[in-house]
Design a protein around this nucleic acid. Structure first.
Lengths: 158, 158
DNA sequence: ATTGAAACCTGTACAGT
DNA sequence: ACTGTACAGGTTTCAAT
């Protein structure tokens, strides 16, 4: 089962650029035995299709003074506050990710704080005033690993 | 309190490149009123300092057939299996993030699966055989938002 | 640590296939 | 949809400050 309109070349391109957004397209072109223009057009196509959503530099939060990373499970007082709470959470700079989840929590957010005291401030002064029923904090005291999900468009036997 | 050896220029550079890894350094240079070479050297410095860990393209997982994203809380049978379990988890392509956490779980992982059935396969065939005590799955049925944490090196009054 | 200039390499557009 | 060309613009290095 191949996905959408993507082929082996798209897969190879994605694999080459996903972990290095600065790689020259000409280098990708040479590795793929096609012209630079072809890579340029493919990346354009992948962007138009919404497969590529952008690029970013990866920053080590700790080096910028954010030494505490935590996941916080949020229990809402009422399902009707969903949209409001998400909108307000998005305004809080330290809240970097937010997911609607099944299971025990209504929402799961990821937060960066300077330290544990700062995290407590965020929870008390920023989160609680939104009218949450309860929160449950999971402090990540180590980021064991982080990688890209498997790009596999064309089915193979390997 | 300024962090490390970083100044306003570093902050401005980071802010400009963090959400667009493909932005030309010359464009950053013009915005900062310095030469292109200066940006080049600063980015090099930030990389050497470990502030910049790399760059990546952001891929929409759904468009590549990964329609289910889940967080799984893992309870280990014994603390002694920590390192082994993390090492094995890292080998599973669908497991993209792994955190040591305080709170109820020993580990929290993020997983991409093709669909709910595929997620069940991963849990039963890939995770359970590692000898876990129990897992708790939070399926993210929507990614409400995702952004970069606040880059702020120099203290200001704003 | 930053600059300007040089040499080199890429990105991008376009006409042709 | 890919290629080759062409040019504009970017990257990288380096001697000088």
């Amino acid at each position: 089962m191949a996905h959408h309109d993507l082929d082996e070349l798209d897969e190879k391109i994605l694999k080459m650029i996903v972990d290095n957004a600065r790689i020259p397209f000409l280098e990708v072109a040479r590795a793929c035995n096609v012209s630079g223009a072809a890579i340029h057009q493919r990346v354009q196509k992948l962007t138009n299709l919404g497969v590529i959503k952008g690029s970013e530099y990866i920053i080590e939060a700790e080096k910028l003074g954010f030494e505490t990373c935590a996941f916080i499970g949020i229990f809402l007082t009422s399902p009707s506050t969903f949209d409001y709470v998400v909108k307000e959470l998005e305004k809080i700079p330290e809240v970097v990710e937010c997911y609607y989840t099944t299971g025990q929590y209504d929402l799961l957010i990821k937060v960066y704080a300077k330290n544990n005291k700062d995290l407590l401030r965020i929870i008390h002064n920023e989160l609680q005033p939104l009218g949450l029923s309860r929160t449950e904090t999971l402090i990540s005291f180590k980021d064991a690993f982080r990688k890209k999900f498997p790009i596999r468009i064309v089915e193979r036997n390997d």
